[in-house]
Design a protein around this nucleic acid. Structure first.
Length: 815
DNA sequence: CTTAGGG
DNA sequence: CCCTAAG
């Protein structure tokens, strides 16, 4: 490990040049090393020094981040590449639309195609890619595949207007491909910590999140775009549908190892690179076969040459499939071959396990009966039944868990954390499922494509339901562990703060409605799967909230199509929600779940009296505990830890309420989300509040955790970069716009100023709303200072805020 | 579209 | 939270 990191240091280089160029290189080795969970954990902690940059920003005005970026893709749904690059805002600004017009030969279309896979790409023909009107130029991208949609960014952040000690962030991002909002960071670490170590827990938690698919459903469906959509759907079809795969086989695909250059070109890898990478991969086993023998005949060998490229790709290069004129669809595809987290041995073991233990298992009573593979796709043999036997991982001893771990990953672990072990094992399983889902397998040095609807579904079903984890409980457990052990040996306050921060984040995302969440989480799959599921649900009794009840009943053949059926392709289109118009086949349900900006008045739906009471109750509880904590010398960190559960509760409750309501409405509207939205849009304009006042239509109270997130976001990205913050920290809060964030921040500033004033009227006086904890406010003040935001003392609004507020106006100092 | 600022 | 202006 040491060596790895040592090497990594060389591999990683970040440099800036007058703020307009960034050369970000992170070697694949870096990533692989980094993501070798076991290794990471075995090594007590990582030395940040070793991954530190060797280059500081020369230009002090370059306030943004230099990002060593990586990307990954979850190809588990056969989706095409989705790359996201994290670039400094200032860079986005400084980089103007360039390199236009100079048409580049045949390479160009490919590049554009490729770039069109970027979440934000709209105008790829002109610019490299654009996000929100800004064009961004990427000097270099190296792509790394990870089992889940994760990418890791090593970022150096100079919080404006310039902080002498730049903060370094090691951040895990995750999300789903196609997610407009990209991802949410799991937390960052200021590398100025004395010992310059990355706390194990940090990585721990990050990976935990990743493993549990720490993202919410809402954000999934937001990829908009007229032309691109088809494109994307086609992609899905292409890879899922057996026939197209066959087609590919007939028309051998030419793979190329490419790199993305700043101007958008895809530069073929040099021989040197190839050699180097190939060399690196030498020790990586390739003869993985996760596909049961019985399925092999459906496998299609793509091309022998792809061998090399796949390997290369594993080393962080992109795998570019040459454009095929006939389809005009997918031209870029990243294949999942081996995973950093689940190495080959993992896969093999899993396979074995499934073969071995399958008979003895009875499906999980909950859902198994409803969603057993058999039910789903008429295929009898589950892949991971043993794993699925799961499992009651809860009841296993540490030792047993270790065994399970070994069985899953083929190696020992020293980790003692039960929760983690469980999760990790599950993660391995899920990832393995993903592998299968990808329909790509490597066998005997050949790439096998094993695409077929049935397989996919089957595996999926297992991926979903083999996870028995009680997410909430478990998380609490582990969080608690971290929370304590953490603080015990922590060295710095700042570190504490950060950690607790993360804990809070974890908490929030992990313990939403338990049932729902487990369903959501695991169902990393996309709409397609959701749709299928919903049909099943309508026949069964499952209560998976993220799916809809279909008004039109699914045609049975959708589920019975076999791998070899030629009709699969056209049928499969019906699986793709967005293709409804294309296929001309009626799509039963849930096509457009919250496609554009989500309803803003969702809160009005959410607040029934009962729930409102509950919420306020929770908040009061939280407040109480905060206060008591404050008496014993509270700190920001303390606050975080003491509050998180309350916050969580409230969030959970809200979430629950919201989804419940949505569910209801779905029923009412027959699952047609369009009419659903319409019906909702002209609802209540105002909502009476407890005090008899009136709240605005689109008002949604800020939760404490949201505020904290905002504060955190500001600290990370700087005040003013609201869209950035929105994107990265509020991705899951679709109802908060960047403007909202800005407004809230403004209010926080006011609040902070007020709070600093001697008269502590705010907290003394009873209020219906919850006061913002002082630690947060002080942090706000701190950040305001850093950001050069003059304290708006003379702001009239600030003074009026307290007395002259309207019921609708948010009051400074309160949530 | 993003951000700032007034309402 | 809404709206607008400026970029």
């Amino acid at each position: 490990m040491k060596e790895k990191w040592g090497k990594m240091k060389e591999d990683l280089s970040l440099s800036t040049n007058n703020g307009t160029e960034v050369d970000a290189r992170v070697s694949p080795t870096f990533l692989r090393s980094f993501l070798q969970v076991q290794d990471i954990l075995d090594q007590n902690s990582l030395l940040i020094n070793e991954i530190n940059h060797n280059h500081e920003s020369k230009n002090p005005d370059f306030l943004s981040r230099n990002v060593g970026l990586i990307r990954l893709l979850n190809n588990n749904m056969g989706r095409a590449v989705d790359i996201y690059a994290d670039l400094p805002t200032s860079m986005m600004r400084s980089v103007e639309t360039t390199s236009e017009g100079d048409t580049r030969s045949s390479e160009k279309p490919n590049a554009n195609r490729f770039l069109s896979r970027f979440p934000f790409s709209k105008d790829s023909s002109k610019k490299i890619w654009t996000a929100h009107g800004r064009s961004m130029q990427l000097d270099l991208i190296e792509v790394k595949l990870l089992p889940v949609s994760v990418y890791v960014a090593l970022a150096k952040a100079h919080v404006p207007p310039i902080r002498k000690d730049p903060r370094y962030f090691l951040t895990f991002y995750w999300g789903r491909e196609g997610e407009t909002c990209s991802a949410e960071s799991s937390g960052s670490l200021p590398l100025w910590t004395p010992d310059r170590r990355i706390p194990q827990e940090f990585i721990h938690q990050s990976l935990e999140k990743v493993a549990s698919g720490g993202f919410s459903m809402e954000t999934v469906v937001e990829v908009e775009g007229s032309g691109e959509e088809k494109f994307e759907d086609s992609v899905i079809n292409n890879s899922i549908c057996n026939t197209s795969l066959s087609k590919q086989a007939e028309d051998p695909v030419v793979y190329k190892l490419v790199r993305v250059e700043g101007d958008g070109r895809l530069v073929p890898a040099t021989d040197d690179e190839i050699i180097e990478v190939a060399d690196l991969l030498k020790d990586e086993t390739i003869d993985v076969d996760i596909v049961p023998n019985s399925k092999k005949n459906t496998s299609i060998s793509i091309e022998e040459t792809s061998n090399v490229t796949v390997l290369l790709e594993n080393q962080g290069y992109l795998h570019c499939q040459k454009d095929k004129a006939d389809t005009g669809k997918l031209d870029v595809r990243v294949q999942l071959s081996t995973f950093p987290l689940v190495d080959d041995s993992d896969a093999r073991n899993i396979n074995q396990d499934s073969d071995a233990g399958e008979s003895s298992d009875s499906p999980s009573p909950k859902m198994g009966s409803v969603l057993s593979p058999t039910t789903v796709c008429g295929i009898s043999k589950p892949y991971f039944s043993k794993l699925r036997g799961e499992i009651c991982l809860d009841n296993l001893s540490i030792r047993e868990l270790h065994e399970a771990f070994k069985a899953t990953f083929g190696r020992d672990t020293t980790v003692k954390d039960k929760a983690w072990l469980k999760r990790r094992i599950m993660m391995g399983l899920t990832n393995s499922s993903d592998v299968s889902m990808t329909n790509f397998t490597i066998k005997d040095g050949k790439v096998l494509v094993t695409g077929n609807e049935g397989n996919s579904k089957e595996v999926y079903a297992h991926a979903v339901f083999s996870n028995p984890l009680k997410v909430v409980d478990e998380t609490k457990e582990s969080s608690a562990i971290y929370g304590t052990s953490y603080l015990e040996d922590s060295q710095v306050v700042s570190l504490k703060r950060l950690r607790n921060h993360d804990l809070v984040d974890d908490y929030r995302s992990d313990s939403l409605n338990k049932e729902e969440l487990t369903a959501k989480r695991i169902r990393k799959p996309t709409r397609r799967y959701i749709e299928e599921l919903s049909k099943i649900e309508s026949q069964g009794h499952s209560r998976l909230t993220s799916s809809c009840q279909g008004s039109g009943q699914p045609s049975p053949q959708l589920y019975t199509t076999t791998a070899t059926s030629k009709g699969v392709c056209s049928n499969s289109r019906t699986f793709v929600t967005r293709l409804d118009s294309l296929a001309g086949i009626q799509v039963p349900c849930v096509s457009r779940l919250r496609r554009s900006r989500p309803r803003k008045d969702i809160m009005s739906l959410m607040f029934h009296h009962s729930s409102m009471e509950a919420v306020t109750g929770i908040m009061k509880k939280a407040l109480h505990s905060y206060r008591s904590a404050g008496e014993s010398g509270s700190s920001y960190a303390q606050l975080m830890s003491t509050q998180k559960q309350h916050i969580e509760e409230s969030e959970k409750l809200r979430h629950c309420e919201a989804t419940d309501k949505i569910e209801q409405d779905k029923y009412i509207n027959g699952g047609d989300s369009v009419s659903f939205e319409d019906a909702c849009n002209d609802k209540v304009v105002t909502v009476p509040t407890a005090k008899g006042g009136i709240r605005r239509k689109h008002h949604r109270a800020w939760t404490l955790s949201e505020v904290m997130k905002l504060v955190d976001g500001v600290s990370r990205y700087g005040a003013g970069r609201w869209s950035e913050i929105k994107r990265l920290a509020f991705a899951s809060y679709s109802y908060r716009t960047s403007v909202d964030l800005k407004d809230k921040w403004r209010n926080l500033l006011k609040a902070a100023n007020f709070a600093s004033a001697p008269t502590d009227v705010m907290n003394s006086r009873k209020h219906t709303t919850t006061p913002i904890p002082a630690p947060i406010l002080s942090r706000v003040r701190e950040l305001a200072e850093i950001n050069g935001q003059a304290l708006p003392w003379n702001l009239s609004s600030a003074k009026v805020g307290f007395n002259g507020r309207s019921a609708n106006r948010s009051v400074a100092g309160y949530l």
